[in-house]
Design a protein around this nucleic acid. Structure first.
Lengths: 217, 217
DNA sequence: CATCCTATCAACACTGTGTCGAGAAGTTCA
DNA sequence: TGAACTTCTCGACACAGTGTTGATAGGATG
């Protein structure tokens, strides 16, 4: 029974609760950000760049967003919502074939993030300097950890998976592996799993860690 | 047969090849950096702070180091050297008892980094904006991946570990898990493994992933 | 004692952030 | 129509931080 994230629907990141033609501008800023992030990292994009890209002056930018970071957070908010939904779906179907089920679940998050890689890479960058970004990420992670913990526990209860480390700890370690591995692959780091291999490898570790017998002496 | 890193011994990060009393100053800058990093993140430490802490003016700082980043890189260089040695030692002894051997190896890197956590946390932060930091980290990771790959392959050759995903891929995934998990624990992130649990959990995943039987249908 | 190298810093030039206050441009309604 | 209000815009400013320049002090060297 997957947990939903505490939706942040209600609190829009930019200003403007009321209607106005400036909605276009707000959108222009967001799309400019997304476009520029495909070219260079967040740290090399200035408010000036975003403003110019959206056809406004720098001070006007601040009418729409309180900071550069807020733009990114808005982008991340949106992506997270999409990614969460598809993962929960996959996790729910997992009952029958473990390997295939887990694979689908990992695939879901891989796809959700892979399709907007510039944005998550930037989010990861932002996380190191921005507390709000850290909290947002922590909330997302917490949701996943909860979901995966429940599934592991139910697999153990079903007698399909053996007892072992606390399910939550296992979930944390495996999800952290995924996070780091996906980041490295998306960023094309030097030791990183090839894009067409990453799912096979990660799923294999998940399945062995969750269902594998206790280690041979 | 553990690989040694391409040592960067020869190219000191600060200036000053020749002797001078200014060695003290250089050391003062480094210790100031280490001290300040225990209080706040790298992004909140300015060159001014480092200079003042070392009792010199900001321009004088630039006589010793080309930038704030260079100071941190020097700190990391040193730490890496220490950490590498102890891990290789542990890995070498692994032949007899797999679980205990891997545990010692992970312990080694955990201790090496744990004792200077402010510095690695800062290094991770720096990595997002500084190419040289990324390369340094990549080199370190590559060394570890190579070492671990060799050990996994030899365990497979010995017939103790079953065949599976390419040893190198497995090594990458597991090391990335460790990296992320250790970071989260050191940084006291919200979903993170407890400090007194992390080794048990990570070792368990390693052992199952490397020695575990193929997953049950 | 002239000269060279180390070491030092005030002053500057530059980049980027965020704010202020003066307005333009549109809407409402009397 | 035209006052009053709200939305939106930007020039000009104040700051914080980085990195550079040029002048200079003070040893060591020959």
């Amino acid at each position: 029974m997957p947990t939903s994230l505490p939706t942040s629907e209600a609190a829009p990141r930019g200003r403007r609760g009321t209607r106005a033609s400036g909605d276009d501008r707000e959108r222009a800023i967001l799309t400019t950000a997304e476009r520029l992030l495909e070219e260079r990292p967040l740290s090399e994009i200035s408010v000036e760049d975003l403003a110019r890209g959206a056809g406004i002056s720098r001070p006007t930018f601040y009418f729409y967003f309180p900071s550069k970071d807020a733009v990114l957070l808005t982008l991340v908010d949106r992506m997270v919502e999409a990614g969460t939904a598809s993962r929960e779906e996959a996790l729910a179907k997992l009952a029958k074939e473990p390997r295939a089920g887990w694979r689908m679940a990992l695939q879901a998050s891989f796809d959700a993030f892979g399709s907007r890689r510039a944005v998550i890479l930037a989010a990861a960058e932002l996380r190191t300097t921005n507390a709000e970004a850290r909290e947002l990420w922590a909330r997302v992670m917490e949701g996943w950890v909860t979901d995966v913990t429940v599934v592991i526990e139910s697999e153990r209860a079903r007698g399909v998976a053996p007892a072992g480390q606390p399910a939550r700890d296992l979930a944390i370690a495996l999800l952290q592996m995924n996070e780091r591995a996906q980041y490295a692959t998306f960023a094309a780091e030097s030791p990183a799993l090839a894009e067409d291999r990453i799912l096979d490898v990660l799923v294999d570790v998940w399945v062995r860690a969750i269902y594998g017998s206790a280690p041979a002496a």
